[in-house]
Write a protein that binds this DNA or RNA. Structure first.
Lengths: 116, 116
DNA sequence: GACGCAATCAACCAGTCGGTTGACAAAGAC
DNA sequence: GTCTTTGTCAACCGACTGGTTGATTGCGTC
């Protein structure tokens, strides 16, 4: 078990409910009850979602009295952003290079040999 | 079924094998056989992974003879990047504002009332 | 037409996931 | 102490996932 960090983050955000929680936590910290309020699921289900988010390092929990406020940890987003940017830029660069190749192609060279 | 686009993209990238495929496709298009070569799984499994990536709009397929080359579609990354950036910036902004609040806090105001 | 290669379809299997209900723990409030 | 609030743990359930093997399709070669 214990998949790599990136897999855990992506997988955590693959669920719309969890993404919505992240969205709301970006505005303000919240307790489990506050977080659960808009959703039509049990408190236990929300608790499970939070465990997933916490496992991915996306949120942290503290303690005040019997409450356990949830706090969004923004740093983990960097991990994703880096991964995404790398391959997006690489793909765009490749696309740009293809244009160059096509532009510099001599006319007597067949770009794609016709079938048969 | 047919989860929203963002869920499909995140879920597709939650798998390390699929992420590796994306990484390799960022360098060059490839056939299923070429893609499958480094992994210790059946061709059918790779075919399934490709269906997931295609379903998320991350790759497209064309046809040349009996081959079906896979091509990375970079645009979808924008969707993710936008989502991520929004909430990262929001969280960072919130963090910055908290600093301001603390800095402007009069000394006679108890930031956290001590227990008991 | 027969053969071979690239890739997919179909059925199956074990494990994970998101949800449930029920019991429990921890910290105030009375 | 007893009650209430806040939240978790545990067991269970149906659906989905990533993998398998076997049969099949599509296309070029001989």
């Amino acid at each position: 078990m214990a998949a790599d960090a990136l897999s855990q983050v992506f997988s955590a955000l693959a669920d719309p409910t969890r993404r919505d929680m992240v969205a709301r936590l970006a505005v303000a910290d919240a307790t489990v009850n506050e977080l659960a309020e808009p959703y039509d699921v049990s408190l236990q289900a929300v608790s499970k979602h939070l465990k997933v988010l916490q496992g991915a390092g996306l949120v942290s929990r503290s303690r005040q009295a019997q409450r356990r406020p949830v706090h969004l940890e923004a740093e983990v987003f960097d991990l994703m952003t880096k991964w995404i940017e790398r391959y997006r830029l690489q793909a765009e660069e490749r696309y740009r290079r293809l244009d160059d190749v096509l532009a510099s192609m001599p006319d007597d060279v067949e770009p794609t040999p016709p079938p048969r």
